[in-house]
């Protein structure tokens, strides 16, 4: 039995339908089974952590001074959960779903649109990639700084929309 021939799209069709934040398509991408699990886990963890913080406050009020520190720490952990949830949410809405595909691309590997092996939408804003380091030519610390800055600019140019904090170098 011959295997069916799958024709790859020659252009990036995914980017045309990529869900922007606020659109119905964006909401659908956050309502997959995997994402529902994440939403539930986020709510459960935040409520649980805040409850633990409240419990520590009651312990601290009844004389356990050590509990004051824990009463501060639990809400911070809850905030961290929200931060990770929000970041993954934004990441998904930006385009490529590294979470759904499970295996993330190796750093430095170019993002190939329409790759049949890993069907994923190509993002408008790509993930930060590792830039090949070019050793600075010429002597002097200024040249090294300049080369480093040029590498940074190259990376920014290759990743439009990326924040400076995403720079992997």
């Amino acid at each position: 039995m011959p295997t069916p021939v799958v024709t790859k799209p020659t252009y990036d069709t995914a980017s045309e339908t990529a869900g922007r934040p606020g659109t119905l398509d964006a909401m659908k991408r956050l309502w997959t089974p995997a994402w529902i699990v994440r939403h539930v886990a986020m709510v459960v963890l935040v409520v649980g952590f805040l409850a633990l913080g409240w419990w520590q406050i009651s312990r601290a009020a009844s004389g356990n001074t050590l509990s004051w520190a824990y009463a501060v720490q639990w809400p911070i952990f809850a905030g961290f959960v929200v931060f990770v949830w929000w970041r993954e949410l934004r990441h998904t809405l930006r385009g490529r779903s590294t979470l759904a595909s499970g295996a993330a691309a190796a750093p430095g590997e170019p993002v190939t649109p329409g790759d049949a092996a890993s069907p994923r939408s190509t993002p408008a804003v790509r993930r930060p990639v590792r830039v090949t380091r070019v050793p600075a030519t010429g002597g002097g610390p200024e040249d090294a700084d300049l080369a480093e800055y040029n590498r940074y600019l190259t990376w920014l140019n290759a990743n439009p929309g990326a924040k400076p904090g995403d720079y992997p170098g």
């Binding site: 994440r38 520190a69 824990y70 720490q73 911070i76 952990f77 961290f80 990770v84 993954e88 590294t98 979470l99 499970g102 295996a103 993330a104 691309a105 190796a106 750093p107 993930r127 930060p128 992997p168």
Partner: peptide, 22 residues
Amino acid sequence: GWLYMLYLAATFDLGRRVNWPL
């Protein structure tokens, strides 16, 4: 407790750079 926060931050930073799944 406080050091574990640094651990979380460092792990998050590393995972972001090497593209770990969530």
